[in-house]
């Protein structure tokens, strides 16, 4: 029973990784395209692609929130972990749960705000981008919502592992 769910979670995780790597690759390609437009395509063919900087900005926003979810998954968020190593396992576990609850509090407010901002910005253009779906202003908040929900899921996972006593979590290294 449990094995089947673990398998699905693994697949979903892999899909998320693939999507994020995809966004990242396109983003870098667009920055390259911008220079190519200025130095090669523009002078030769008269096509200047002025939307490239808007698109790379939009992709970076998307990457920030979806990527932050991956950072939550990998516990790679920058953390100043001073106190944890001086605590007893029991106290450390309680503190880990407290941390997670605080993070959940923030995420709930963020999600609430993102839904409200979605309504407020519907159909507004973003920079020099056309009004295609996924490229207009309200979509920025869709990316926030997707990232926020994923982060919630990973924080809940952290709480569960703290409750069942996963030592690896409590002594995760300080990250840069």
């Amino acid at each position: 029973m449990l094995g089947k769910y673990q398998f699905k979670a693994k697949q979903a995780n892999r899909l998320l990784t693939a999507i994020t790597l995809g966004i990242f690759t396109v983003m870098i390609a667009v920055v390259g395209l911008q220079m190519l437009a200025r130095w090669v395509i523009g002078p030769l063919f008269g096509i200047y692609l002025p939307w490239t900087s808007s698109l790379s900005r939009l992709l970076l926003i998307c990457l920030t929130f979806v990527g932050a979810a991956i950072a939550s998954r990998e516990r790679e968020h920058v953390t100043v972990n001073l106190l944890m190593k001086y605590l007893s396992p029991r106290a450390a576990r309680a503190l880990a749960i407290a941390q997670s609850l605080l993070v959940i509090g923030f995420l709930v407010v963020l999600l609430h705000g993102a839904v409200a901002m979605y309504d407020l910005t519907v159909d507004r253009t973003f920079g020099a981008l056309p009004t295609y779906p996924m490229l207009t202003n309200e979509w920025l908040y869709v990316y926030v919502i997707i990232g926020g929900i994923l982060m919630l899921i990973y924080v809940l996972r952290d709480i569960v592992s703290a409750l069942v006593g996963n030592e690896a979590l409590l002594h995760s290294e300080t990250k840069r």
Partner: peptide, 11 residues
Amino acid sequence: EGIGAAPTTIS
């Protein structure tokens, strides 16, 4: 662009 210049967006 319509006038024939090569517009670029730079912040």
